[in-house]
Design a binder for these strands. Structure first.
Lengths: 348, 348
DNA sequence: TAGCGATGTGCAAACGATTGCGCCGGTTTG
DNA sequence: CAAACCGGCGCAATCGTTTGCACATCGCTA
């Protein structure tokens, strides 16, 4: 119980040498004689000595901790991403501090504040849906805490980020639909501000152009991703004069809602109306009417790359080359995954 | 850039007073004159002073950080639980260090090691599936780091834990099925070692007894929860001479596989065979053939309670009453949730 | 024999904040 | 008028570790 944890000073006292010698001995410093080294290391092992990290953190102005701020762990994308982050971090002796914004800007600010005060070495952030104001990120720069954004990237200059290029995946998706005979294709897109939304639209436009189809802007609707808004957006698309026969939806979750709405309207999924979406979640495998295809965004890989990038920034910082004004912009390519015949097919 | 962060000493220097006065002024200590207090607080605000937590952690031998070790964030149960943990922690100015064991004992050990070395104040743990050896937890006791287990509880004496009693929920489930007219009810249970499996079986037995039905042990099968094994177990149950008309399944994920298997056998779900399971996941709402009902285990609440418990242990520790040999064993009641008409119903 | 380079150690400062104790000057009290 | 008291503040130690520098000892060379 009252086993005070052994310290370097304690070891020094017992061996009648100085703390500095002990410290150096434990680090295998070359200037310490072999005999002393051995004696120190032996006693350290015997006493079960473990360095007091809090002291070291303090002294070195470094915590070997990275903060991760993301919207929602219950979304499969993020839980996969955090696995990538964690694996990479632990491999490099870093530790992961977690915070969910639940898509609230307020919460996001708080978390960032807390993490800043806990002196994390760096941050990995996927911003909240509704975040409009980026001051809390700007302030981090002044504190010299590097940030790498992933997946949900704010519209700011001079930032590091890792993202998945959705243009290619979107083009693949549209091509797929066109090949299936669709000509009027709707897009149920996310908030306009998100880079991810812009890319989807961009891909949509490019694909239409490449296929020599006219781009009809009324076929693209933006909405935040709440169920109600998704219903409304789906309704809007389905009531257009030029009614789409297929819809590309922001992601698999949203697609579930959109499908739900369509079914309430007595539409036959995959006959009257087809859906393609993003994320390629495993659950949609079990789902009643999964999208016909889904664009994989490689969350684990994104998490991993983002972490690697951050760690590199940190090691540059340590070696003193702070001011390098280069910004990492890492882009992975997305990829369309066409679903096998699903459960629903078997029903019919 | 080279804006060295302001420290208490810096403030003291500028004001020509001592650091101790500054510290006390910032803490509104009663022995500091109003004038000085104001001057200090003003300058602090002006310089954007923020206390260096690492220094405080070090000095106070406390990190205001709790470690969370759990098997798999991609499981909805755990991502919900961690939300409860996080919310509670942040409310109390604590911060959350995360680690996933991915159900590996080795990984679990490593994470605990890392967290110990990072000097977390306490731990919240849901153990890995395959963990047989609990030495790494025993060792924490010696370091005086309190642990509260949740959901997946190891079979050890003298531990704190929060869990959900599945007996009541199971009884409700069986009663529900019996009321629907089922008489031969199977149970597809998890690994025998898990307390959670034992409880399910116990509930099953009790419910049968209460309904004056004979308990037939052959109707209960255990298996680890891989898809293959689930298929096999389902097959086993469906091939019994006394073939069940309903099966109670370990959880919703497993139920998805069991359903899948049954459908491959051309059985009509909810007609030839009914399923009831545990977890009450939102996804099953969108699923082709969700279980008719599911036992809710309140993960968010479990996370919250576990965190509260841990925080209480920590505050007891601070106030010096270490040795109290009482162990918290908090049990929540589970509850059967009967699903509304689902998508599949609408199909038929 | 003086000087020199290794080699092995210790001293002390530094990181930033907290806190017990003591000091100083002024006011109250007996 | 001296004693006691108190508000307001500073000194210095402390937490555990790292690290630049100085120092001591020894053997070797010039």
């Amino acid at each position: 119980m009252e086993n005070k944890l052994p310290t370097i000073t304690e070891i020094a006292r017992r061996l009648n040498i100085s703390a500095s010698t002990v410290s150096r001995a434990l680090h295998n410093h070359s200037s310490i004689g072999l005999r002393t080294k051995m004696r120190v290391q032996e006693l350290a092992k015997e006493l079960n000595y473990e360095p007091n990290q809090t002291a070291i953190f303090f002294q070195q102005r470094k915590t070997f901790t990275i903060g991760v701020v993301l919207p929602e762990l219950s979304e499969a994308f993020f839980s996969a991403a955090i696995s990538g982050i964690e694996d990479c971090a632990y491999k490099n002796k870093y530790t992961v501090l977690m915070g969910q914004s639940h898509d609230s800007e307020e919460k996001e600010k708080q978390i960032i504040e807390t993490m800043k005060s806990h002196r994390v070495d760096g941050l990995l952030v996927s911003i909240a849906n509704k975040t409009n104001n980026y001051d809390h990120f700007e302030s981090l720069k002044r504190y010299n805490i590097p940030v790498v954004f992933f997946d949900r990237i704010p519209d700011m200059p001079d930032i590091h980020y890792v993202a998945c290029n959705l243009i290619s995946g979107t083009i693949q998706a549209i091509n797929f639909l066109i090949k299936k005979g669709h000509r009027v294709i709707g897009m149920l897109n996310g908030p306009e501000k998100l880079a991810a939304s812009k890319e989807r639209e961009e891909g949509y436009i490019q694909a239409m152009k490449k296929n020599r189809l006219k781009f009809d802007p009324t076929l693209v609707v933006n909405c935040d991703l709440s169920t109600d808004k998704v219903y409304a957006a789906t309704e809007h698309l389905l009531k257009l004069k030029r009614k789409p026969t297929a819809i590309v939806v922001f992601n698999d979750y949203v697609a579930l809602d959109a499908v739900q709405y369509a079914r309430r309207q007595k539409l036959r999924i995959n006959k009257d109306i087809c859906f393609v979406s993003y994320a390629n979640l495993p659950i949609s495998h079990y789902t009643a009417f999964p999208p016909m295809a889904s664009v994989e965004q490689f969350p684990y890989l994104q998490g991993q790359k983002a972490t690697e990038t951050l760690l590199e920034l940190l090691s540059n910082k340590d070696s003193g080359q702070e001011g390098t004004n280069t910004y990492y912009k890492i882009i992975l390519e997305s990829q369309l995954v066409i679903k096998e015949n699903n459960i629903a097919d078997q029903v019919l």
